[in-house]
Design a protein around this nucleic acid. Structure first.
Ligand SMILES: [Mn+2]
Ligand SMILES: [Mn+2]
Ligand SMILES: [Mn+2]
Ligand SMILES: [Mn+2]
Lengths: 217, 217
DNA sequence: ATATTTTTTTAGACTAATCTAAATATTATC
DNA sequence: GATAATATTTAGATTAGTCTAAAAAAATAT
């Protein structure tokens, strides 16, 4: 059994390591968690003891198979709850993250499976992120960011990398929501900002940073 | 802001004091919470400092107005979640208590009001207990326990006092669920046990203890 | 290859929630 | 009203999660 705090660490480490591939440094984790590096050292020692991380002093951590499974269990719950909040309780996509951050720690396998069933076994959450299965399997997707798209090509928004309210409200404003079609009209090589056309209607300029956080297919 | 632990204490004290009327002793609380009396003393000091309890050394505690409101806020969430689990996720009434015990601590006013709306503003939970309003108001009910009923009178089951799985499964078995009609056929004065007829069909004997936990109208 | 800077770990301390054992107050009994 | 029993509080520890400051290791720059 993991405490909510341990669960949050393992989930963050999973994300920071790009789904468990890369090693993650102490400072990277402390930045993400808004805790001191000293606290992180304590916690990664504990998680290593529980075999969720491989830890080499001064070398950072790598998440183990067991750690990945724990992270995916949590991510599954997080995304199912976000889906519930949007589809059943009429939350907007920028309101769900913080509540799901709490709900993901509720411990009841029956609740998770019934929620999944109630929602009709959804495959993606309101931000376009895939929902891991009960076995912890994530579908492979071949997405690229808006920033990586070629000039004069058209794509569909399928997900967002940043779930902050500020970012999502901005996307709502310019109309770049999931499902909308975007064509890249021009790219400023100096800073990577783009001029885009959304749904054949509005033309807007977006920064490189914004374009990095919009995932297309 | 209260921690989940503080919330659990204030809720238990509210129940033990019969909705805030009576004083509650340290040992009564420690029994209910399964903690040591020493822990209770520490906690009631803290809650008294937060003005949720009136505490006089060696004399027990009485819940304040502020404390009652906190308790009712929690009870409202608990009962709304139980209702959700039964009505939307097909939990049975004996499966909901422990999960609701976790869900009640989720902190999101928007979530509570949307859940209330989604359920069509329910007034009672799956155990027949009234759901406090957003303002903390509880409807006054005039129920009496099955044990208090007169011989040869008929009543309807409206609530249960014990929400444990063991008790509820027993009620399912004998068919004494909410809405069923019960007539008291005979009472054993020695131990207060009863012979009852349920829904004009089956006759069973129930102990005084069971009869105490079935609320009738 | 040294010296400096950055990163990471260790040492020591704090708070919340818990415990056991000892001390003290209250209540019941004779 | 003294004594015994019970209830409650205090004292002192423990664990989880956090912090700051100091020490040590690793990375970078000269
Ligand atoms: Mn979380
Ligand atoms: Mn999401
Ligand atoms: Mn609880
Ligand atoms: Mn209930």
């Amino acid at each position: 059994m993991l405490s909510p705090t341990e669960e949050n660490y393992i989930k963050s480490i999973f994300h920071l390591s790009e789904d468990g591939q890369k090693e993650v440094s102490t400072n990277t984790i402390s930045d993400e968690m808004n805790t001191s590096a000293a606290s992180v050292t304590d916690m990664i020692k504990k998680l290593a003891l529980k075999k969720l991380l491989d830890y080499r002093k001064y070398k950072g951590v790598k998440i183990t198979k067991k750690g990945k499974l724990e992270a995916l269990r949590l991510i599954r719950k997080h995304r199912l709850w976000e889906t519930f909040l949007v589809r059943k309780l009429n939350f907007s996509w920028d309101q769900v993250h913080d509540v799901a951050e709490q709900l993901e720690h509720i411990n009841s396998p029956l609740l998770v499976s019934r929620l999944d069933e109630f929602l009709g076994f959804p495959t993606v959450d309101p931000h376009g992120d895939p929902i891991p299965g009960n076995d912890g399997k994530l579908p492979v997707t071949n997405r690229k960011s808006l920033a990586e798209m070629e000039l004069c090509t058209m794509g569909t928004v399928v997900a967002v990398k940043d779930s902050s309210s500020l970012f999502l409200k901005y996307l709502d404003k310019i109309g770049a929501v999931i499902g909308s079609k975007i064509e890249v009209l021009d790219r400023v090589d100096y800073d990577g900002s783009l001029e885009i056309e959304i749904d054949k209607k509005s033309r807007v300029f977006v920064s490189r940073d914004v374009a990095d956080n919009i995932m297309m297919v």
